[in-house]
């Protein structure tokens, strides 16, 4: 199972599409899709990091960035 948090696909592009095609489309497959029942004893962030990240668990930390911008913002 490919458990990466972002997947992509290449939609059909017609010769007659009026706009400039976006050849690759992305969608998010975040970690909760793969974890099942969370196992005990997983690694934890420090309290300060956890507050900032919104989760105590690195296994659930999956920040989002615009996949269509190459500077990652």
């Amino acid at each position: 199972m490919d458990t990466s948090f972002r997947k992509s696909f290449e939609p059909f592009i017609s010769r007659f599409d009026p706009c400039k095609p976006i050849p690759v489309k992305y969608y998010e497959t975040p970690p909760q899709l793969y974890l099942g029942f969370q196992p005990e004893g997983l690694e934890q962030f420090s309290p300060a990091e956890a507050l900032k990240h919104g989760t105590l668990w690195p296994a659930l930390y999956a920040p989002y960035s615009n996949p269509y911008r190459h500077d990652g913002k």
């Binding site: 199972m1 490919d2 990466s4 972002r6 997947k7 992509s8 696909f9 290449e10 690759v24 489309k25 969608y27 497959t29 899709l33 793969y34």
Partner: peptide, 14 residues
Amino acid sequence: AVELIKDSNTGKKI
């Protein structure tokens, strides 16, 4: 269908 799109990466790999 969810399993299919969870697993596969049909386009470019990141």
